[in-house]
Amino acid sequence: MIELNDYLILSGLLFTIGLVGVLRRKNLLMLFFATEVMLNAANIAFAATSHYYNDLSGQMFAFFIIAVAASEVAVGLGLLIVLYKRHGTLDLDNLASMKG
């Protein structure tokens, strides 16, 4: 039988994968993908908790996470396009133009 802990372990594993991606990636687009992985891991944890505790609040928060992710992608991709037009690359190291 699948328990709540199994879903939480799956969510933790996916969150770890996303966190490793955030720490490891230097390309900004890949960094966005890793963020999406982390948001989805949080959604799985919310839905599983909502199911096993018979409470709909978890699903509500998952909806709001999806809304936040959608607006984040809209604004972030606009910023990425502006950055790419200006620098011609999406590398994070090129962004450190203010270092002394």
Partner: peptide
């Protein structure tokens, strides 16, 4: 509030990408 946030994000995306 989420609806307003999505509207703000839409306007920001149009302005940023549509220069």
């Amino acid at each position: 509030v989420a609806a307003v946030m999505l509207l703000v994000a839409m306007i920001a995306g149009i302005i940023l990408a549509g220069k």
